[in-house]
């Protein structure tokens, strides 16, 4: 499998964050949430830039002339238009007879990207898809949003998807748009443009945000996760005609160690088969799954032929799972 990731050079440790928020108990956070560090893009660096860097790493192992489709997942586009994937085609020097499009999803984005790529391959529309997930939630966060500054990090990953290097099984994909308000950046597009006189407000315990910035209702998202994800995992196994015990490894969206551990116990997955990989990166949204997968491959936690369930869930609300064969 050809998969590479890129993390911005600038990083921020819990100790550095605690200097900004002196009342923050970073040790308890680290113990519960499992995040010690996160990488943050520079002011003039975008999701497209880090996506490009991950793609260059991946294309070092593959003939770029053969790429005939680019899928780019981001919620931090460079422009309203054109689509960032078109700019990426040019920057990477890919063929002009190459399709390219962005899609806007968050934490379910990698699973959805694999589904789109599988469709393109199965229909014969494309033969080698470059799937890039690139996210910079740091740009959406209010400087006073302590909890989300601690949770989210920036990152990107690029995967070459074709019929030779990766087996992609059946999918279970789900949506509930009634939960849109639970994780949202309200202002800045056309429904409600950015408001220069916007008022800050406090939420949770001492976190500041505004309608120009990202808001996440943590308990509501947590409720969604523990309600929907166990059933999603069972349905995905059923669609792939597998028992859960036959799955070699599980990589869930790396949101929060506490939540992941709770889900693992609830679904009854052995710890040795369950990935927890967010200590150095935090929650990188659509990039968590491929970053964790690449680290698992590099560590030898998964090997060729393994069947790995990938489970994404979050903003939308949107959730999905599939089983890949390395």
């Amino acid at each position: 499998m050809i998969l590479e990731y890129y993390l911005p050079q600038q990083s921020q440790s819990n100790i550095e964050l605690a200097k900004i928020f002196p009342d923050w108990d970073h040790q308890t956070f680290e113990q519960k949430v499992g995040i010690k560090n996160r990488h943050i893009v520079e002011v003039n660096e975008t999701a497209l830039d880090i996506g490009e860097k991950s793609a260059i790493k991946a294309l070092a192992h593959f003939d770029k002339e053969k790429i005939d489709f680019v899928l780019l997942c981001t919620q931090s586009s460079d422009y309203f238009l054109p689509t960032s994937a078109c700019i990426l085609q040019d920057r990477l020097g890919l063929n002009k007879n190459c399709g390219a499009l962005d899609y806007n999803l968050g934490c379910s984005g990698y699973v959805y990207g694999l589904a789109l790529a599988k469709g393109l391959l199965a229909s014969g529309i494309a033969h080698n898809v470059l799937l890039v997930v690139a996210e910079t939630y740091s740009k959406h966060l209010h400087p006073g949003d302590r909890v989300n500054r601690a949770i989210f990090g920036d990152g990107a990953a690029a995967t070459i998807v074709n019929n030779e290097d990766l087996g992609i099984g059946e999918f279970s994909l789900n949506t509930d748009g009634s939960g849109a308000k639970e994780l949202i950046v309200r202002n800045g597009a056309f429904r409600t443009p950015k408001d220069k006189d916007v008022k800050d407000y406090e939420y949770g315990t001492g976190n500041i945000t505004s309608d120009n910035h990202l808001y996440m209702n943590g308990p509501s998202i947590f409720n969604f996760t523990i309600t929907k994800i166990p059933a999603l995992v069972r349905e995905c196994a059923k669609k792939n005609e597998m028992e859960l015990r036959e799955v070699d490894y599980f990589i869930f969206h790396q949101a929060n160690q506490f939540m992941l551990e709770y889900l693992r116990k609830k679904i009854k997955i052995e710890p040795s088969k369950f990935c927890i990989e967010l200590s150095d990166t935090g929650n990188t949204v659509s990039a968590t799954i491929p970053i964790a997968l690449k680290k698992a491959i590099d560590k030898g936690a998964v090997i060729k032929g393994n069947k790995i369930m990938l489970v994404g869930f979050g903003v939308g609300l949107s959730w999905g799972a599939t089983i890949i064969t390395l």
């Binding site: 519960k32 639970e182 709770y262």
Partner: peptide
């Protein structure tokens, strides 16, 4: 007490009583 504490209470109630509290 912080944002995580609510999640802790939610898991305790879910695990021990089978009740998923909402936000």
């Amino acid at each position: 007490w912080d944002s995580m504490s609510i999640l802790v209470i939610m898991t305790i109630v879910d695990e021990n009583f089978g009740i998923t509290l909402s936000a």
